[in-house]
Design a protein around this nucleic acid. Structure first.
Length: 108
DNA sequence: TCCATGACGAACC
DNA sequence: CGGTTCGCCATGG
């Protein structure tokens, strides 16, 4: 059986290129109804050399709310733009223009 | 064991 | 309708 974090990473890895999803959606996909913050915690713990597409996870409004000092919002913005995703500066934060949300069939 | 801390989200003013 | 407050939950001290 996978650990909670392992399940989270697996779900994140399922997000197709060019799409994004929110912390809350991932949380529900791993049976944590209100564990959005926990998902953020798990992603922060990802090793730098990981191949998990953590940058495809944004908050429910499409904003990049990452707080990591090294791998910051600018890094995430660059990676998203490489996939053709358009970002605009709003409320002093980068935001995905017209998010194509990736949903999960069930989970529950 | 209790308390504080987030890469959040929804409910309240 | 928007800014603020309050839950949530796994971790770490």
């Amino acid at each position: 059986m996978d650990s909670l974090y392992q399940k989270i990473y697996t779900k994140v890895s399922e997000i197709p290129q060019g799409s994004v999803t929110s912390y809350g959606i991932i949380a529900r996909a791993v049976d944590l109804a209100n564990g959005a913050r926990t998902v953020g915690w798990a992603l922060q713990k990802l090793p730098p050399d990981s191949n998990v597409p953590w940058y495809r996870v944004v908050n429910k409004d499409g904003y990049l709310t990452i707080l990591h000092p090294i791998v910051n919002a600018s890094t995430q913005k660059r990676l998203l733009e490489q996939e053709g995703i358009i970002l605009t500066k709003q409320n002093n934060l980068w935001r995905v223009e017209s998010p194509h949300w990736h949903k999960y069939q069930d989970s529950r």
